Amino acid sequence: MNGVARIKRLIPHRYPILLVDRVSAVEVGRTLVAHKAVTVAEPCYRHLGDDAAEEDYAYPISLLLESWAQAAVLLICWEQPNPDVLAGKVELAAGIKGVELGGPVFPGDVLEHRAEIHRLVDDAAVVGGASYVGGRKVLEVAQFTAALRDSSVLVRDKPLTGAPR
């Protein structure tokens, strides 16, 4: 079982920001291949009118990167499920570098995300990989660093200095 039900047991993302539909291959602690079908029903397209040009339907780069990062996090925590960000360990993105784009993605395209762990250090991982549409590379990520931290880091005991009240 590597569909949405399994994915939702591993990461806390839900609609509209769950951006991985299926995992087709996983070698625990090493590599993962995941897929995301881009459709015209995505929330990012709802503002487009009937007169929108084809290029207006290019999938936002931020969502493309987020979708790949979700695949990377799935690889990192494949054996450590935690769909509840209020308990246990949470995955926090710590950094990303070496991002290269290879061309636009449009509704009807199916993204194939490939992620590979480069290093595991304590409760952190460095992952790299790429995304493809029909064999065409649309994204490459040289290094994505994620850290697993206790969920208590998300809870603030007192307001930050200067924070709005």
Rank of each mutant, 00 (worst) to 15 (best):
R114L: 02
G88K: 07
A124R: 12
V90H: 00
A93L: 04
L120K: 13
E112A: 01
A87S: 15
R114E: 06
R119C: 02
A125D: 06
K89R: 09
R114C: 02
G88Q: 09
D109N: 15
D109L: 07
V121D: 12
G102C: 02
H118I: 11
V105Y: 04
K89G: 00
D123M: 09
G98W: 07
G108Q: 10
V105K: 04
V99E: 06
G102A: 03
V110H: 02
P104N: 06
E116P: 02
L92C: 14
A124Q: 14
H113N: 14
P104G: 07
A87W: 08
G95F: 11
A125T: 09
A87D: 12
P107T: 13
L92Q: 13
A94S: 15
G88I: 07
V90I: 15
G98E: 12
G108H: 05
D122S: 10
G102I: 08
I117R: 04
F106C: 08
A125K: 03
L101D: 06
L120M: 13
E112V: 05
I117W: 02
V90W: 00
R114N: 06
K97D: 13
V110N: 03
V90A: 00
V105N: 04
D123F: 03
P104F: 10
A115E: 10
H118E: 14
G95E: 10
L111C: 03
G98Y: 09
A93G: 01
R119S: 06
E112Y: 01
D109E: 11
D123L: 07
V121T: 11
E91T: 15
A124S: 15
E91C: 06
D123K: 14
F106S: 07
L92K: 10
H118M: 11
P104Q: 08
